[in-house]
Design a protein around this nucleic acid. Structure first.
Lengths: 200, 200
DNA sequence: TCAATAAGAGACGCAACGTATCTTAGGAGC
DNA sequence: GCTCCTAAGATACGTTGCGTCTCTTATTGA
């Protein structure tokens, strides 16, 4: 492409590449994503991309982090169970097919590139959604639905873990029935167990 | 390779290919696995493999299923908690790094090949380990540690799901601390919750 | 014994990899 | 405003593995 456009640099260029990566992901998925296609879409060249990110997985992770997380307000629905269902549905909507395939792909490469593994781990652990659970539990305690508990960090992560696992093994969005199952057969019992046998 | 060896066929040949696949998986992992290398190791040619399996993922799944599952006896340790810890450790030992990377790889391809997705789903759901949980719970009920419960199918799958998720995001075998966390902060509370608030 | 079938060898065009080289634009410092 | 110097961008390269194809030859079972 001759000089009709001015040459981009730094921050600006980087954003363009990450946006192009995200667009490619949406269109062709992780397995179909090629550095060459990203370069073409961003109207730059492979070299520029390789200068910044050492692997496809690193690029994709950067693009993922670059995507502004849509903030969601979690309303008080008046009961612990419906609060949880709402939360699970919110998470499930976010972990769609493209997302799952991307995570599977990045996971696969994480075994070869330790630095990717670390980035991925951080990404999955830092999810702001985890805090929501404690808020929901606190509300339930205030209502008297549950004795007050401090939910362990591990238990806070479970909703996202379960939904991700399910989405990845099904290769399709979660059905309402599955979500109800996760809440009624797993998570709600777990919270009741935690609350009524504290510590142990 | 000229005809020093007699030409293999059918069943016999198939086993040789699946064994070669498993060996390649162990050595180079899923991401490094190539059909050409498998063919070379099995002393056959690509054509023969492509005639039987449409994709790398399908071949790997077949090799996985072909691996004879090591049968493990699950002893009665005298308490629900230690029974569970023993079970979790058994599962975790089985889901080692190679296994996790393989599953991640197959999952990635499952999104493109629906028939692979189905095979994978079957493989993950049919795990004989699921039944163990109900046995352990029944024993605990007999001891009086827990009211008797019928654990829902979804809840039976949780141990394997959690361990797999953890192994895949860590890229390393689970530590004892993690296993203890999964039992104490998640699964044991869940069972107590299920047992003391049946149905709901 | 002979035909049908499947194994095995190899060549193919293709796509993307990751690297290396070179030119040129644009920003910083003076 | 001029000049460096850095980074952008283009392109070409060898490599690897893909998946398909064609052709020969061994084996089997009727």
């Amino acid at each position: 492409m001759p000089a009709s456009k001015t040459r981009r640099r730094g921050e600006h260029l980087e954003r363009a590449i990450l946006d192009a990566t995200w667009a490619e992901l949406s269109e062709t998925g992780y397995s179909g994503l090629t550095i060459e296609a990203v370069a073409a879409r961003a109207a730059t060249s492979k070299t520029v991309i390789y200068r910044r990110w050492p692997s496809r997985a690193a690029l994709v992770l950067a693009a993922w982090n670059h995507q502004a997380p849509v903030s969601v307000d979690e309303p008080d629905t008046g009961s612990l169970r419906t609060d949880l269902l709402t939360l699970f549905v919110t998470i499930a909507r976010r972990v769609d097919t493209m997302m799952s395939e991307m995570i599977a792909g990045v996971m696969g490469e994480a075994f070869r590139h330790p630095e990717v593994a670390e980035l991925l781990r951080d990404r999955l652990r830092a999810a702001p959604l985890h805090d929501r659970v404690q808020q929901i539990v606190d509300r339930a305690a205030r209502r008297g639905e549950l004795p007050p508990v401090r939910v362990p960090a591990r238990a806070l992560r479970i909703p996202l873990d379960l939904i991700r696992t399910e989405a990845m093994t099904c290769g399709a969005p979660l059905t309402d029935a599955t979500i109800t199952e996760l809440v009624d057969d797993v998570y709600l019992p777990m919270l009741h167990g935690l609350a009524s046998h504290p510590d142990r």
